[in-house]
Nucleic acid binder design. Structure first.
Lengths: 205, 205
DNA sequence: TAGATTGTTAATCGATTAACAATC
DNA sequence: TAGATTGTTAATCGATTAACAATC
């Protein structure tokens, strides 16, 4: 077991988790070869990745899927619940609030805020849209550490700053813009146009 | 100018495009140092990336933003329009259909299909939800090459296969599952839970 | 010309993978 | 024991970056 897990390994762990839960439907154990096939990566890669976790398989047998999944969840920090706030109650924000898939990994949308007074007070999936100026209180009350930005690009940097001021330290940005992360705040970005752009590139290559 | 553009470079190009359009608001030219600052990458990285494009800056001056942006768009294949079909008219699918941001890079949602007869016929952002069994005709009629999967995970592999059969060769998968790509089809995956998982990992590190 | 910044090389760094001894 | 598969090393591969000559 080596200590610092490479970023590339971390990025693959959730993928392994997904594949393992598929395989678990029919089997209790699997080999690195089998998982490699399902995840589309090299089997040596998989064994190396797992060696960082201190997760031990059994030579000649393979990995116990339940054990391994549990190890991965522990390493990623998916053994607790994370309250999440969504900023921006437009189509995308509301779609995310309605999307139940976050809960399986412990992410629970506990608040949705919007700057538009006309949206404030409206219901979304059991929650009520709250005003942006209550953000500090909302983050405080719910001990929120993670925010998702579903605002237009033009409002995204302001939103980051306000989330940071309120005490949120992890942000997932869905707005199509590169943001500056305040000190102590980490931002990940998902840009669907970028993904389509990369698809387009490969079509023409 | 070397020929094969590394995948890592390709993945950064859309980011540069975003940053350049921000910078273009106030300036017509920029240096690799300035863009590096905005994009959060090393300036040598940027110059190296651009050297693959055959895009030439001017020594002592920098890069012409309009020229450079146009080069990047050309390389990525963003100089034409791509008709896109969205499969799955749930919250996410409808949010994407409503989302206007794809059009700026030439991706135009021309059809939304769903398997649920109750949804078929309903309007979404000027389109009408069409039945899944018309997929081949729809893809044909609109010369669709790109599909976005916004179905539940359980329906995603079937959807890939049907899209592939219909002639779609580029797929963006938003369902939280690892899919097998049929021959000649490329799939990119965006998994928001995975992104949150990686955020969670870094919180606890 | 002097200052600035590119384009490119070469060095560094890190990630992937083949190979195989260890061992179930 | 024989067969299978891990865990790990060492080799390979590719990506990043420092450095600097070229040149605007």
């Amino acid at each position: 077991m080596k200590d610092p897990i490479p970023e590339s390994t971390v990025a693959r762990l959730p993928r392994y988790l997904r594949c393992l839960s598929d395989i678990a439907v029919s089997e209790a154990k699997c080999s690195s070869e089998e998982l490699a096939e399902a995840a589309g990566v090299n089997s040596a890669q998989i064994r190396k990745d797992f060696s960082y976790l201190g997760a031990y398989g059994t030579r000649g047998v393979g990995y116990d899927i339940a054990d391994l999944s549990s190890q991965i969840r522990t390493v990623l920090g998916l053994t607790r619940t994370y309250p999440v706030v969504i900023v921006g109650a437009g189509n995308l924000g509301n779609a995310l609030t309605n999307y139940g898939g976050f809960r399986a990994w412990g992410f629970e949308i506990v608040a949705v805020v919007d700057i538009d007074p006309n949206k404030v007070g409206q219901p979304v999936d059991g929650l009520t849209i709250e005003p942006m100026h209550d953000l500090v209180r909302i983050v405080d009350d719910n001990s929120i550490e993670i925010g998702i930005i579903a605002t237009p690009a033009s409002a995204a940097q302001t939103t980051v700053n306000r989330l940071a001021d309120a005490g949120v330290t992890s942000i997932l940005n869905l707005a199509p813009i590169i943001l500056k992360a305040p000190d102590g705040v980490q931002i990940r970005r998902v840009d669907l146009s970028t993904e389509l752009g990369i698809l387009a590139y490969h079509r023409n290559t």
